[in-house]
């Protein structure tokens, strides 16, 4: 049994809390919105009574955790703030995981007190093939930190892929041009949004249509992620297609905004 300190009770954070609790780790959850953290903790407890999930209010409450996880939104200022706070409570043998995918681990870790402890821990959504985490070492990450991260990921039932410190890592790096091309096909009026999702599910065999998925995960998030990847790599396939920027400017961010890609079949 290990103490896990988790910052960020959003989608990724709640999935990790769930997985940690299921295998018997003690989870301490911190979110700037305490009620959100309480809700996630309660959901996890409801799933299995024997689990130990607590909510803490300050970073000092995470001291002594063997694994510290940053799972806040993919925004540089948020990432930096949380990582530096976590580095200040970590001990020499702590491993500090960041769920970032569009920044390099090297860049995120460089200004921190414990750069050797920082490991990229990019969690992808659950699929019928399991749930993937991409583990990435930065230039200053120690091999033992990577080993700890790999062992932790395997313990909580993730499929583990250790990859290089590339923007977007591998799965998202490959997926983003695919999604951008779909958005451009819509702007080119090749077909209607609902037909895109029908073709990709019926013809390519995906479980969820790509536009329904973008609506669910946030069109603004995809725009930001592919834009950052483009800035780092300058691959035109990563350049955000103009329709994405127009949609985000108009507030069409997807399900959370009440509108995004319209006319899709309801799942």
């Amino acid at each position: 049994m290990t103490d896990i300190g988790l910052v960020g009770a959003g989608f990724v954070g709640s999935q990790l809390a769930q997985r940690c609790a299921e295998v018997g780790h003690r989870v301490r959850l911190l979110d700037r919105d305490r009620r959100r953290a309480e809700t996630v903790a309660q959901t996890v407890r409801d799933g299995a009574a024997a689990t130990e999930v607590s909510v803490v209010d300050v970073y000092a409450g995470l001291a002594g955790c063997a694994v510290l996880v940053e799972a806040v939104s993919e925004d540089r200022a948020c990432k930096d703030e949380v990582l530096s706070a976590l580095a200040s409570v970590g001990a020499d043998d702590t491993v500090l995981l960041t769920t970032a995918s569009s920044y390099t681990v090297t860049d995120l870790a460089s200004a921190l007190a414990l750069p050797a402890a920082v490991v990229g821990f990019h969690l992808m959504p659950e699929t019928k093939h399991g749930q993937l985490v991409e583990i990435a070492a930065g230039e200053r990450t120690s091999p033992s930190s990577v080993e700890q991260a790999e062992a932790f990921a395997a313990e909580i039932g993730l499929r583990v892929l250790t990859v290089g410190d590339r923007p977007g890592r591998i799965a998202r790096r490959l997926l983003m041009p695919f999604l951008n091309q779909i958005v451009q096909a819509l702007d080119d009026a090749l077909l209607a949004p609902r037909d895109v999702d029908r073709i990709v599910t019926l013809g390519l065999g995906h479980e969820e249509g790509p536009l329904a998925k973008l609506n669910r995960t946030g069109i603004d998030d995809h725009l930001a992620a592919t834009g950052r990847a483009y800035e780092l790599v300058h691959d035109p396939a990563l350049a955000p297609p103009p329709l994405l920027a127009r949609m985000v400017s108009a507030g069409r961010h997807g399900d959370k905004a009440g509108w995004g890609f319209e006319g899709l079949e309801r799942a």
């Binding site: 749930q131 892929l161 591998i170 998925k213």
Partner: peptide, 18 residues
Amino acid sequence: WATAEEIDLAVTAGAGFP
């Protein structure tokens, strides 16, 4: 970047291809 097996894992369990 990775082996064929590893990229196939990224594509299926990561990107959701069948």
